[in-house]
Write a protein that binds this DNA or RNA. Structure first.
Lengths: 108, 108
DNA sequence: TATAAATGCAATTATTTGGTTGCGCAAACC
DNA sequence: GGTTTGCGCAACCAAATAATTGCATTTATA
């Protein structure tokens, strides 16, 4: 839990992914998040710490409560990485539709 | 290295991500892949095993060589998971452009 | 002001991970 | 036919990870 700390490692854990979905639309406290899962508050706290380290969540202190919410901008990094593969599958899709349209033309 | 085996855990490792990029456009043998990194063939083999288990790569045997390549369809699963967040950031983008266009109109 | 609530932080532990080493087994090559 | 090459597989090991437990600290509340 020390060295590696990137966004891909962060979303590798299913609990962390669930947390991200949970706080995507509304800020939540650690206690409230923990209640949603079968985990302890401390465990949630650790996950949030990891998410914070790679800037996936932001926090807002309100009295003794801390509200955590998703830093949506950071999620774009995954999208960016994925785009190189998206290019490939889109290219294949176009190839396929090209073939189909050629077949259609030939039928005429 | 036994129980959990999903695509997010698979792409958590930087070496595995690099392998995926490497074999995205051309099928490669374990030896050829290992030469690209600072790892042993066996280490690569293990990574490929993990990638195979979650169906991210396919293989084709040619004599004593095995060519591994990316199963691009599986990558769409990440895209699918990401789409729920994409909705959010696109919504915010539209909100922003709406505000900007309103300001522009008011200026006129 | 004492007590309860909300949280972070450190120490500990069991499990998982990534890597190495050492096989064994086919397929190619001499 | 013997040797080399390309692999996978199993055992082993050090490091990382996820979770628990036990505090300490700050902010509400009675």
């Amino acid at each position: 839990m020390e060295v590696r700390r990137d966004i891909f490692q962060a979303i590798a854990d299913p609990t962390r992914r669930a947390i991200l979905v949970l706080i995507a639309t509304q800020a939540m406290t650690p206690n409230a998040i923990a209640e949603e899962f079968h985990t302890s508050r401390q465990a949630v706290s650790k996950h949030i710490q990891i998410l914070t380290e790679c800037e996936l969540v932001k926090q807002e202190q309100k009295g003794r409560e801390i509200y955590y919410s998703l830093e949506i901008e950071k999620m774009k990094e995954i999208d960016k990485w994925l785009s190189q593969f998206r290019k490939i599958w889109e290219a294949r899709f176009h190839q396929l539709t090209d073939v189909l349209s050629t077949m259609k033309k030939q039928k005429k």
